[in-house]
Design a protein around this nucleic acid. Sequence first.
DNA 1: AATGAATGAGAATTCATTCAT
DNA 2: GATGAATGAATTCTCATTCAT
Lengths: 210, 210, 210, 210
Amino acid sequence: MGEKNRRSAILAVASHLFAEKGYSNTTTAEIAQEAGVAEGTLYHHFGSKDGIFLTIFDEMAEEYLAGAERLAGDGKTGAETLSGLIRFHFEYLERNKTRFLVILRDFPNHLAADRDGRPAEIRNRFSRMTDILSLVLTKGFHDGTLRPSFPVRDTAGLLRGILYGTTRHSMLGIIDVPLSRLSRMVEGYCLQALSPDSRAGGKRGKGGKK
Amino acid sequence: MGEKNRRSAILAVASHLFAEKGYSNTTTAEIAQEAGVAEGTLYHHFGSKDGIFLTIFDEMAEEYLAGAERLAGDGKTGAETLSGLIRFHFEYLERNKTRFLVILRDFPNHLAADRDGRPAEIRNRFSRMTDILSLVLTKGFHDGTLRPSFPVRDTAGLLRGILYGTTRHSMLGIIDVPLSRLSRMVEGYCLQALSPDSRAGGKRGKGGKK
Amino acid sequence: MGEKNRRSAILAVASHLFAEKGYSNTTTAEIAQEAGVAEGTLYHHFGSKDGIFLTIFDEMAEEYLAGAERLAGDGKTGAETLSGLIRFHFEYLERNKTRFLVILRDFPNHLAADRDGRPAEIRNRFSRMTDILSLVLTKGFHDGTLRPSFPVRDTAGLLRGILYGTTRHSMLGIIDVPLSRLSRMVEGYCLQALSPDSRAGGKRGKGGKK
Amino acid sequence: MGEKNRRSAILAVASHLFAEKGYSNTTTAEIAQEAGVAEGTLYHHFGSKDGIFLTIFDEMAEEYLAGAERLAGDGKTGAETLSGLIRFHFEYLERNKTRFLVILRDFPNHLAADRDGRPAEIRNRFSRMTDILSLVLTKGFHDGTLRPSFPVRDTAGLLRGILYGTTRHSMLGIIDVPLSRLSRMVEGYCLQALSPDSRAGGKRGKGGKK
DNA sequence: AATGAATGAGAATTCATTCAT
DNA sequence: GATGAATGAATTCTCATTCAT
């Protein structure tokens, strides 16, 4: 086993164990043993148990966001891009189930907690996704393929919540819908909700009960 | 101080602390001290720390589900009932922010883990909500006010994911949209997505013009 | 072994081990085992390893200072009181060798370190001794039995340095003078240095070389 | 960067860090980083962390003792030499505050501990100072400028304790007397205590008037 | 029912030192 | 000489739970 591989061996083992048993039920001793390194080596490379988690998270987030940004940048219409993004989201998670389960299962909450009054750095990752979605919605609004009935940024936030919530419930088995079917459903419903063809605008919802 | 009061004092204090610091960062010693009882008393009433959490969760889930079931059972149309449910959801959480934060922050994952191959009892709570939503969707389908483009049960699951994900992101500050605005947005978009007025389904959306 | 005794058993064992092996070379596991209690019990009673040390220190400091204050308050002349204090100092340490060795050997330095810019609380103990000595010097100055050639408070500080340094060197074996002889020497030299009978005042030292 | 410079860079950085944070709170990794060398390099030059400390200590002790021996050897009277030694002591420490703080703060006690029943080598350094002081006291006794009321070697030991204790308390801020004032005070009081002019010994002080 | 002292099985982390390159 | 990745033993502290009173 080469030197470079020690680092990735640790990450692979940790991903696996975190996904299987949860973050807090996995001990650093276990990770070290399974990866065939000394416990100190974990700390040499990642500084702390949290550091291991953060590295896994960062690498995945970077990959995911890079993929999403690539899609958002190509020349299609807004609606097509939104479709593409939603498909990409579910395909990516299907391919990275293990690593994403780590995050879903028990994201170490203190990592997202604000420290000293400033938002945790991890939040920046999150907001990049809102930026991408906002961009796509704006594009669709201009090219006439999408008509958000609420402010673009709020709608982007809503979409993020939808993607997160549905993905989570499916992956944790809370609802009995596999990711592949979920992908088609979210795509279908979102486009319909944002469709410019629809006469029934969101505004109605704002106005009154009936 | 009567016996009943001790019990509720403990629950109130625990809700508060769990919401503020998270389940695992709250010690039983702390709960006991703030509630003004001995640590052993916690165990007389709730058997374990998990027992305290489960009691809080159960009480809230029962209230929530009872409210949702009441709404689902009245004589309105499917679309109106769905609107009502969504509004109820966000209003209820607005009124019970603290207790719900307990669940959002760091739900003790082992409580939802399957034990001995059988699904955790806590899952039953969850599935009741799917039942309610399925009922409403079916009603709307029959009275012509809703037209789900996917199987009713799957759509109900999707709606649960949407409600959970958007609520979570808002309450944890991951997106910058308050619950009240979110309520109107979710209501608007969901009705539009499920609207029978729209001929253009998500898959076919690109084609149809009228 | 009664319940009260657990606490004192821990203190006795800890004093012994700290004196013998030094603070940092003594593990909490060792203390617990020798005291016949669980390790957690240490933390139940003292909160931390430092807490154990601090308790030992405080109890001794309190005893010592109480004794010194009692002596300083009786009706003798300043010089007699100073003699008494010096004798008391060495006798007390002779009787409490073990506990004092704990402090001499390796006082956990971080305990005396200023935190957040404010002096450590432990300093207050120290300054009480300066107060006592200042009082005695002042008394001696008024009744004519002592004539400090430098400001009273500075001289008191000097005396504390003398007591500490000579005691330390003797107890750690750095100099080959037992405490009992040291006591007589310090008493003799201090009284002579502060004696009003001496023509050669400290002022000479201040003035010139010759 | 030449080889010599690496060595002294390490010593300078280590002195600084030891003085600031204490020996045990300074890690070898830190020293290496601040000195701009690899951690292994520390071990090439000094063999161990203790080795670094010992080198700093030895260099300073050698300088100090050489200076003291030089003073002790010149042709002045005993009293003048003692004055000179005391002034030298405080001046030297004033000029070498940082390095001396290293030793005061938390001298690694195991280095002074007897090993295999034999006194630690570091003790030899200490005893050289007693030799010097003994010499000076003897000289003063013969030329009539000093009259120790106790055996010369014991008195020398006492003086060392006085110098150590007062210096320590001042440098650690335990007493509020700067080194320069302390120097004059120690000089004044020591000469007075050892003065042949004073007939009144510590024990007999009360009696004699003239 | 209520108490709260006692428990004890962990778990993360530190860091001086080594050694192959 | 110089490097710095790897080591791994050692240690403090946590905290849910128990049980005698």
